[in-house]
Amino acid sequence: MNVVQPIALASDRVMTALIAGLELEFGRGAGEALASRFMEAEDIDIHWDARNEERWIGAYGSQEGEVELDRIAATGFLDGRWFVALFIVDGDGNAHGMLSCRTCASADAAALAFAQAR
């Protein structure tokens, strides 16, 4: 039986598990460097999947005939830190980009930054 958890529920263990898996595959010492590169490459999707709360900010400018995109503010907890980010998201809920991402010292600071996001 497999148990699947969203990143938001297991976010405090994401980096630890990623590093451990990469060290098993590529040897001790390589895991941390490879995990950092992996996180950079998948930064948008990882943050989007780790969100706890989101709020529509407004439409994101697009040309006639293109996919309609929205700006969405989101807050979440990833790798032991709270964050607030502004994403570009399509109508199917897929993140296409991250305009900004701010880490916060506490849940209260993240809640304040999330409320002020524009």
Results as ranks from 00 to 15, higher is better:
V84K: 00
G21E: 10
A107P: 07
L99Q: 14
G76E: 05
D12T: 11
Q116P: 00
R28Q: 14
G93S: 03
D12P: 12
A105C: 00
I88L: 07
A20V: 14
R81T: 10
D79V: 00
D90E: 03
G76D: 01
G31Q: 06
L34E: 08
G76M: 02
S62Q: 13
C104G: 05
C101D: 04
G91K: 03
L69S: 02
V67Q: 10
W56F: 15
I19F: 02
Q5Y: 15
T16M: 02
E40H: 10
A95E: 02
F38N: 13
A10M: 13
I57F: 01
T75A: 05
F38A: 11
N52R: 14
V89L: 00
L69C: 02
F83I: 03
D92N: 12
W48T: 08
W56M: 10
G21L: 11
V67K: 08
A73W: 09
G80E: 02
I88H: 01
G93M: 04
A33C: 06
I88W: 01
D70P: 00
I7V: 14
N94V: 11
D49Q: 14
G58L: 03
F83L: 02
P6K: 08
E68Q: 14
Q5D: 12
G93F: 04
F26K: 13
G29V: 07
Q5K: 13
D49C: 15
M39Q: 11
Q63N: 14
A50H: 03
D70H: 13
R51L: 06
V67Y: 07
N94F: 10
W56T: 13
R118H: 13
A74N: 03
Q116K: 12
E64C: 00
T16P: 00
Q116G: 00
V67M: 15
E54Y: 11
C101F: 02
E54G: 14
R118V: 09
G65N: 06
A110N: 05
V67H: 03
A41F: 04
G31P: 05
Q5C: 15
D43F: 15
A59L: 11
R81W: 03
T16I: 15
R28C: 09
A33T: 12
G80V: 03
V67E: 10
G27D: 03
G91F: 12
Q5L: 15
L24S: 15
G27V: 02
V4S: 09
E32H: 08
G65Q: 08
V3I: 12
Y60S: 08
F77S: 01
N52P: 00
L9E: 15
M15F: 01
G31E: 08
Q5W: 15
H47P: 05
S100W: 03
E53D: 13
Q5F: 15
N2W: 01
V3C: 11
L69T: 05
I46F: 09
I46L: 11
A110F: 01
L9M: 15
D70M: 11
M1T: 05
G65W: 09
G76W: 04
M98S: 04
A107L: 00
E42F: 11
S100I: 01
E32C: 10
A111R: 12
A95T: 04
M1W: 14
T103L: 12
G21F: 07
L22V: 02
D79Q: 06
F38D: 12
D45Q: 15
A105N: 13
G80P: 08
A107W: 09
R81P: 00
